[in-house]
Write a protein that binds this DNA or RNA. Structure first.
Lengths: 315, 315
DNA sequence: ATTAGTTATGTAACTTGTTACGTAAAAGAA
DNA sequence: TTCTTTTACGTAACAAGTTACATAACTAAT
């Protein structure tokens, strides 16, 4: 089994932590028997909390010990069945059920304290013998994970890996259909297709590239997942247009890579200004444009109906 | 909740380990969704083992990954329901069920490997950020606990604590009844009471102390839990006798403490030899006597029927 | 060759939590 | 005030394992 952890590597950290925890908890039960303390090991956190503080409510205990309330509810019920609980419904807020340990339960405390001390000594002994302190390691780990969840970290790693595999390539005729498809995907989702769209989407070569523009396609493992076009307005001004990234690939910074490439291209073509037209509903898109350096400008009407914002980048 | 761990201290190590493990495993499930790998997180160890090695049996997998066989059995069943398993009953030992991943299952491997790599990177990142490495700490901890279980360690600590509270005191008349009781407890358990017992147990003062012997009682929290007597044979030879420790207090080295005290007393009384008579059935007792320095001697008949071994300590 | 023990596996029930959901009481908003 | 939302808590169902037990197939010992 240990070999399994070694070959699988640290991916099994969760499983391994859990196994070790289970083992310790299992032994804890045996220890309770040893000390003649008629408590179940799992009752301990609840018992301990109640011993520290009178008139706890179920939810209070749950938040203190980090369980859910149904868990505490069940444990209290079991402890009650064992004759250890005093229910006081006297609270003025009728929702709360305040509970206390009764005399029988409190009488167990001295034995329990001895047990705890011995257990603590035993753990300290183990921790002293290990060169890497698991208690401190857990504190560190919990701190780090509170900061940024493991899931989020994996997401980031994935993004980095995928980003490395994304290639920005020039448009060629075999991309025609995909180019249209990618653009229709988002237009149809948020708006309706306008006549102006039809023209440039059906004949990109004629309408965009021939007049001095450019089109880039983003490819991932041989699949085209995004596109972006540069349309010539005059010798020094170009329009960034037809930016589209398929839904499944969103969040991987494909748009950013396409934008960067198109800006570079515009510079090479002699532009000193790029503008674009968009809609404020498309918040991720607007964010992307801002990240690329575009700023909002006013006062120039757009030929597109869906457009309600114009942005520019000067350089 | 974190405060709870701080006040309870390291006794809650088990719970805490388990919680952290659970959290990581919970996130693992989300990650599987992210990568479009149609495996349940809990299937992973089984899947991984089968991918590594063809024609595994249920029990084999179970031992490799450190689960019980019913657990693996269930997981395989679930994976089969998901259409990922090839059952081969072809093994010549009819008890084994050899299982394999089918093509559909193997096709998931590339995606899974990517996922594992990203997860590994994420974990390495966290481990790099922590000053105390939890992975190494767990290895240390598992090594230590394999060496000596937590239970055993607590047992030792308890023994030490209790030993400190045990007092060896001189016999006085109010101990008469308890003295008899303690001895009858073990005699009646293993043998039958002999006439010779009756005399010394009923009149310890007259039969043991008056003729120049001594009796010690071991007391724990005001309760007498053991006794041991020294009977004068001649000016330089004494018999160690009536060694008895109540069952509930056994394993706490009370016998050893009593033995040490009685040997010291004998020296003070001018003895150069102590002998005792016992029965080889009573292995813990014989062990104790050996630990006290007694060695087996032969050839001297005993007045007790139950005696079949004689031991001596010369000094 | 027969009997007794061991091994591989399946099934059922239990363990220790968790979500999901319903209900009563309180708090806030109109 | 009345209506909506939130809070406390119970119950039910689920999760991911476990132990306990039954059974079939092999192995070993007489």
């Amino acid at each position: 089994m240990n070999e399994f952890f070694n070959t699988v590597g640290k991916v099994a950290l969760g499983t391994r932590l859990r196994k070790l925890g289970d083992q310790l908890m299992e032994e804890a039960s045996q220890i309770y028997d040893l000390y003649d303390v008629p408590l179940q090991a799992k009752w301990f956190p609840v018992y301990y909390t109640m011993a520290q503080q009178k008139d706890c409510s179920i939810t209070q205990i749950a938040t203190i010990i980090g369980h859910t309330h149904p868990s505490v509810s069940k444990i209290i019920k079991e402890m009650d069945a064992a004759g250890l609980i005093n229910y006081n419904k006297k609270s003025k807020d009728g929702r709360f059920t305040t509970v206390n340990l009764n005399d029988k339960a409190m009488a167990l405390l001295p034995n329990l304290i001895e047990q705890l001390e011995d257990a603590r000594d035993a753990i300290e002994e183990v921790l002293d013998k290990t060169t890497h302190n698991i208690w401190l390691a857990m504190e560190d780990m919990e701190f780090e994970l509170d900061n940024k969840s493991f899931y989020k970290r994996v997401l980031e790693k994935r993004k980095i890996r995928l980003a490395q595999e994304i290639k920005i390539i020039d448009f060629s005729t075999e991309h025609s259909e995909r180019f249209k498809e990618l653009n229709l995907e988002w237009i149809e989702k948020y708006f309706t297709v306008e006549p102006l769209d039809e023209a440039s989407l059906n004949k990109p070569k004629k309408k965009i590239i021939k007049p001095g523009g450019h089109i880039y396609m983003a490819e991932y493992k041989g699949v085209v997942i995004g596109t972006c076009a540069l349309i010539k307005f005059n010798d020094t001004t170009y329009e960034l247009s037809k930016m589209a990234v398929t839904e499944a690939a969103q969040g991987l910074n494909v748009g950013y890579a396409l934008g960067k490439a198109i800006i570079k291209k515009a510079k090479n073509l002699g532009a000193n200004k790029i503008y674009l037209e968009s809609n404020t509903q498309l918040k991720p898109a607007i964010n992307l444009y801002q990240k690329l350096g575009f700023t909002k400008v006013v006062g120039i009407p757009s030929p597109y109906e869906r457009s309600n914002i114009r942005m520019e980048l000067n350089f």
